[in-house]
Design a protein around this nucleic acid. Structure first.
Lengths: 252, 252
DNA sequence: CGGGAGGTTGACAATCGTCAATCAGAGTGG
DNA sequence: CCACTCTGATTGACGATTGTCAACCTCCCG
């Protein structure tokens, strides 16, 4: 794949390679996928609920989130995505989008036509299988979030979210597990956890008072004792289905 | 596929055929999948969190549910499955199960080895793609449940669940959309919606008083005006990604 | 007839939400 | 460099949806 060093899709190969035993042709096929990189500014939409999506995208930099709006206008965030994530394999294959995807920060994405991905999956089943696995991991995270929002109290919910971030940012190479910058406001945290911004604020304060976290600025999270926060958040890395090396990070 | 008329896996062909343009060989390959049918009694486990799963299963009759237990022992139900559903494509591919799957009633299942499914997906990409789509729909339902549990009040949550059941039972050929038997206790409903059994009880009573539902016995649900219940439940069929004919059922 | 699971109800408690004011920090124009 | 502004963070007082506890009832089944 020496002639592909420049492809913006390299992170996609890296992401998928874990699940499939790719040969050079598989890798080339991914890198050769037609795509167009695009800059999207903060709060820009990648997909809108009820619209038809024709492209999937690879997040090259920045953060994005999926969400739904319920009847009274409240927003529920369903997932956060970061550098290297394959966003919207979900919506694009099923036709009409069942949720919206929006950027949390300015972002750079590679837009890939849905049909090209479909062709790739059909012609190179190993790659198709790897993409399938990738969406299965997404689904696992959704399940954990159902449990988080459904059966944990505010304190545990927020701690859990902070742990998830900690690990995922580390794995994505975006910071240390014990010291990172939250890419979102307390209102976003509230919409992730099914709480109100006010209650999230109180909960963060409490976590701070308990010495589970400390904050230099309101968004910079430092975790003193990772295992203690994980306990508080009822956090078990299992659901992230990390590869060997990565889950080791959980033991700080 | 005339020589396969007896295969227990026929429902699997029917389920998947919608997503792929199968030829006779694809269909045969599915029907030829090695499998063993097995009877599981009520509350039996199909998979246990933290254990390794080697089989996926097709639910031939009865009901099943996925769930997680959180730290204080509370249970969160993640999904309900019924006749024809392909259960545990999720857990089995990712190795260690991140949640448990248990039957709600006595059930009959066809156990299919994970590796056989994997081989099928690699050798017949169209079938692989169809299975992928099937799990994407599961993921869509998970997302809706996050929103249900995270951002709707008890009244709306329960109404939403009743609507989802109504449609899915109808689609699975297990009852009329406006008159069906709930396969679960109020405690199960509570664990689906993140409420307590007591509050579920009160909510059902309220729905009854509002004439949104009526019950002959505690589990037989009759929906007077489907659209009114759907409004109360903030229910939009979109997330179920039903095929053409099926979503038409939504308009009763 | 006895036992058990599950449904129903009431009284009371508490987590979390609402409302509203104030504060802090980043960016902007003069 | 300083006012100005805007978004987001913080805090307090109060309210309410939902949980807890506990009793009792109902139905099913051996």
């Amino acid at each position: 794949m020496s002639d592909h060093d420049e492809s913006a899709l390299l992170p996609m190969v890296r992401k998928l390679a874990y699940w499939g035993d790719f040969d050079a042709a598989d890798q080339s096929a991914i890198l050769d996928l037609p795509h167009r990189t695009k800059r999207i500014e903060r709060n820009g939409y990648i997909a809108r609920e009820r619209e038809t999506t024709t492209h999937s995208c690879l997040l090259l930099s920045g953060f994005a989130f999926r969400h739904k709006i319920v009847v009274d206008g409240a927003r529920q965030i369903l997932a956060i995505h970061m550098k290297g994530d394959l966003v919207d394999l979900q919506n694009s294959f099923l036709g009409v989008a069942d949720h919206s995807v929006q950027t949390l920060t300015d972002a750079l994405v590679a837009m890939i036509p849905r049909d090209a991905i479909k062709q790739l999956a059909l012609q190179r089943p190993r790659v198709g299988m790897a993409m399938w696995y990738d969406t299965l991991v997404d689904a696992s995270v959704f399940r954990e979030w159902i449990a988080n929002v459904g059966r944990r109290d505010a304190h545990t919910r927020v701690a859990h979210l902070l742990c998830e971030f900690s690990l995922r940012l580390k794995v994505a190479g975006l910071g240390k597990a014990t010291d990172y910058e939250l890419p979102m406001s307390q209102e976003h945290i509230a919409d992730c956890t099914g709480l109100t911004p006010v209650h999230v604020n109180r909960t963060l304060k409490l976590l701070e008072k308990e010495n589970l976290i400390s904050r230099r600025t309101s968004r910079s999270i430092r975790i003193g004792d990772w295992n203690r926060l994980a306990d508080a958040g009822d956090f078990d890395t299992n659901y992230l289905h990390l590869r060997e090396g990565e889950s080791a990070l959980a033991r700080v």
